[in-house]
Design a protein around this nucleic acid. Structure first.
Lengths: 169, 169
DNA sequence: CAATTTAAGTCAGCCTCGTTGACATTCCAA
DNA sequence: TTGGAATGTCAACGAGGCTGACTTAAATTG
């Protein structure tokens, strides 16, 4: 299980010696793990005729209730046409409510309905259960390392979005 | 940065206390990191009129040269019809060669051509560079934890495929 | 106040990459 | 030797990305 070796250099500081093979194993782990990561919600969604895109919207509306469409666009990194198709379906199914803004009436503020919150927690709990199991299996120190590597893997602008959401918690 | 706390219980053994909030941050980190993870190859591929599906095929054909279509199917977890479209494009572009099997002539054995190998290493190097940076930023102990959590997150059958590939290295 | 900018939404059309269904070829075992 | 299983191919459909062009309504600015 040597996915990387720490080596002390006389001058000071750690160096990581990473073979291409070690890096590739990390790449494959990322690919296969992401499949597991999405598997449980996908099954729940399929029964409702919804997809991953709907899940993402639901997740972040729950995370930042009252968010505007524009803001959600920035978080998800898709085009408004694409998001709009998804939001329309969610509103039609009574999972999301779109309220005209008070101060700026051009804006639409997004909220989950009770049914939406219900679905969100079903999806969320499925995903949390898997994450919880992975964390328990891997152990406490592993968890911190996991998060640090993921954060270092994000694009800079994505990392900013991620941090903003995290700090809002 | 306390994504999980290790707590010593008198009787022995570690316990992880994970709040839903901590789990959710892990979930969001996974989502945002995966976007970064795929971003670099996606750009290279876009110029060639190829997509992520082609990348995955190229990656695993390189990883296990001579693999059959059926075997590749098991690795990728898609339908053969879906894979076939991808393979046809790769063969047409002269990136992959499909050889009829010797012992069993129903099988096709897949190999990268020189051009295929060339593209593979461009894609691979882009992805490795990001992984390398993430590993360096996160530090040596983080890397091991990262891998352990990812492995624990996979479905059992996926994990078997992953291990088989890893051990073949 | 008029002109411009911004937020949101819509229509049309395209592409990738999943899916099912139908089918041809090849092998092997009864 | 023939029927079933395995392998791979062709066709068509759908989700969910994308671009481009446009409308409507509200806010902002000269």
């Amino acid at each position: 299980m040597t996915s990387g070796r720490a080596v002390q250099i006389p001058g000071g500081g750690d160096l990581l010696f990473l073979t291409d093979e070690q890096l590739r194993q990390g790449i494959e782990a990322m690919y296969f793990a992401y499949r597991g990561f999405t598997a449980d919600p996908d099954m729940i969604l399929a029964d409702l005729g919804l997809g991953r895109a709907h899940h993402r919207a639901i997740h972040f509306i729950n995370r930042a209730p009252g968010t505007t469409v524009n803001n959600l666009l920035a978080i998800l990194g898709v085009t408004k046409q694409s998001l709009n198709r998804v939001l329309r379906a969610l509103v039609e199914q009574g999972l999301v409510e779109s309220r005209v803004g008070n101060t700026d009436r051009r804006e639409r503020h997004l909220h989950l309905t009770d049914a939406g919150k219900d679905l969100e927690s079903r999806l969320s709990e499925a995903q949390r259960a898997r994450m919880r199991k992975a964390y328990r299996d891997a152990g406490p120190e592993a968890v911190a390392g996991f998060r640090r590597v993921l954060e270092a893997m994000m694009n800079a602008d994505t990392h900013r979005v991620y941090s903003t959401l995290k700090d809002r918690a």
